[in-house]
Simulated assay, not measured.
Amino acid sequence: MRKSALLAAVLTPFLLIAAIESQWPAYAAYELGGVDATSGVDSGATPQDVLSAVGEAQGDPLTLLAVGDIANCAEAPGLASAFPVSANLLGLASAFDPATAPAVPTVELMAQWPNAPVLALGDLVYSSGKPVEFSDCFDPLWKDNRARTLPTPGNHEYNTPDAFGYYQYWGERAGPGDLGYYATHHGNWLILSLNSETDASPGSPQALWLKKTLAASPEACVLAFYHRPAYSLMERGGRDNAVALFRQLEQAGASVVLNGHNHFYERTLPLDAEGSPDAENGTVSFTVGTGGETSREMPTLDTTAKAIFGHLGVLRLELGQDGYRWWFEDAESGATMDAGQAPCVLRRTRA
């Protein structure tokens, strides 16, 4: 009996640390309403508030910035790095060093367009989406851009239970009901943040919501953004929801889809619902997982219009009344590495 008591005494602290690091106590508190989901600066602002604050006159072009895969901060060795959540609760120095994060040049580049709303394309923090990663890594990097950011969640955010760290950080900005999808409107554009990390198959709540939203929206041009690309040079698995979303959007006549996840810049040709080129009616997909990560060069496909490897950067979009322009801006040099323009695709369904 004494051995059992001794063993329990030895194991209890380790079990407690494991529970804290796995986020279950914090998640339970969040679900029970014990954590203020709008405790951060401007997190009470809705996505539509962000676009409404831009203030362009009706018919004027809207400038947007888009980038994903952002905050991967270096970690100092030691207790805080091994147990970042526990260390944070104990008031120890943070393991994260935002000043040396690869995303610093990206953030500096975005300051050239201080009034442009930012579409944050998922994997905003590494590696688990924990609240401490948002507070100690992402926020110090991103705080000057937070008020103008429209987020979407990535797979790393869902390494915490139900991505609660993401929803806690963004509050109302993440959309209603912790679902990770919402609609905004500006001029002749419907802008949709969707969730590639939850069910998007036909008949799912997300698919039904998207169908209803498309049918109820009179705008002629549609832009959607979510984390995983449906069709890209690199297929990393887990893209069923992304494919389902792209099919539904393309069949409705969406003009542009923006994604992160792959750590390079890619612009596709206009693609049909199955990912084949369709110059007349297809949807153009941009992958911009270049906020703080880059990957090796790889061969292009016959669906690839442009691919850029080894460069951090930001996609700048200008949404006009019946078309759009784009520029991919290199974060280190400030050079424009890809640019062009295209008309909106004709909306084919509204029911």
Rank of each mutant, 00 (worst) to 15 (best):
L141V: 03
D330T: 02
A53T: 03
N188H: 13
R247G: 11
A82I: 09
G334W: 05
H156K: 07
R267F: 13
G340M: 12
A9W: 10
E332P: 01
P277A: 12
H263Q: 09
P299D: 12
T46A: 07
F286R: 06
A19M: 15
V288P: 02
L119C: 04
I17T: 14
G171T: 07
P270L: 12
F134D: 02
Q251L: 10
I308P: 00
T152I: 12
E31W: 13
S232G: 09
S217Q: 11
L109K: 01
A252R: 03
A71W: 00
L194Y: 09
D42Q: 07
Y126W: 12
G323Y: 11
H311V: 05
S295Y: 03
R350A: 15
A216Y: 09
G323Q: 12
A147W: 06
E274F: 04
H311F: 01
P84C: 11
L233I: 15
S39H: 04
D302W: 01
D49S: 09
A26E: 13
S232A: 15
V125A: 13
L194R: 09
C344H: 10
P277S: 05
V314K: 01
A254P: 05
Q206S: 06
G175H: 06
D60Q: 15
A76V: 13
E266Y: 08
M298C: 03
A207E: 06
S204G: 11
S295K: 03
A80W: 00
D36A: 10
G323A: 11
E197Q: 15
P140A: 08
P299R: 07
D302K: 05
P47H: 03
G260E: 04
G33A: 02
T336G: 02
L190E: 13
P151Y: 07
G282T: 09
V345P: 03
G177A: 10
R348Y: 06
A216N: 15
Y181P: 10
E133T: 10
V50H: 01
A254C: 06
A116C: 06
S128F: 14
Y27P: 04
N259E: 05
V243S: 10
A45Y: 00
N115E: 14
P114M: 03
P47I: 04
P102L: 08
L51E: 09
S255F: 05
G59K: 05
A174I: 07
A101F: 12
